[in-house]
Design a protein around this nucleic acid. Structure first.
Length: 206
DNA sequence: CTCCCGATAT
DNA sequence: ATATCAGGAG
């Protein structure tokens, strides 16, 4: 499909330095941030992690404190009870099975509670520069459907569809650029179609 | 398919 | 006051 190559080229042109909006200094910080970003904006996650990362540096730091203390520190990201348990569970696995290191492959990342393919792909792509799949978050999902790149609604099916039509070397940046585009132009509520550089090739499937 | 939850746009 | 945003687990 020629259209997809055109889309890829235009995205790269307009978002030459797209990167994850999640502030982090190392793979562990990105993993925590990515777990917190479930059903929460990256902007909100950054507010919370600013203090969180000052208090907790190692997997053990997250395990030494009570669930309640952790919950208080991440409260505003929502689903804080689940997320706190998941973070402690993930730190437990990292310590017990991975010598304290964040895994750098999909199979092992998926063993961590609170980590499914979206979160794993974020960590793989932005912490390890590896692509075993494509990040399909709400932005990638919405825009892929609007552009007619998939008709599916299930994130895994969307990911498979995208993996078929996008060259593997573009997997990481394609998501990062679509997410940037989703925030600025192709927004969920009022998409700015008149300002969109993809407008002329967009069937606008909702 | 349901539950988990706060923040912000309308 | 309420709709909408934003993923994972059971």
């Amino acid at each position: 499909m020629l259209k997809i190559l055109e889309i890829i080229a235009l995205l790269k042109k307009h978002y030459p330095e797209a990167k994850t909006a999640l502030n982090h200094a190392n793979p562990l910080e990105l993993l925590i941030a990515a777990i917190l970003s479930a059903q929460c904006t990256d902007e909100r996650v950054n507010i919370v992690t600013k203090n969180l990362f000052k208090k907790y540096k190692t997997p053990l730091d997250y395990l030494k404190v009570s669930l309640k203390e952790l919950e208080e520190n991440i409260h505003s990201t929502g689903f804080y009870h689940n997320k706190s348990k998941n973070i402690q569970g993930a730190m437990r696995v990292i310590l017990d099975q991975f010598k304290g290191n964040v895994p750098d492959n999909m199979g092992e990342l998926l063993l961590l509670p609170g980590v499914a393919r979206k979160t794993a792909n974020v960590v793989l792509g932005s912490a390890f520069k590896k692509a075993e799949g494509i990040v399909v978050d709400t932005h990638v999902s919405r825009i892929s459907r609007r552009l007619g790149l998939t008709k599916n609604k299930n994130p895994l099916k969307i990911e498979k569809d995208l993996m078929k039509i996008i060259p593997k070397s573009k997997w990481i940046y394609f998501s990062l650029e679509l997410i940037s585009h989703g925030r600025k132009i192709c927004k969920a509520r009022n998409p700015l179609c008149k300002e969109c550089f993809l407008n002329y090739l967009c069937p606008k499937i909702i």
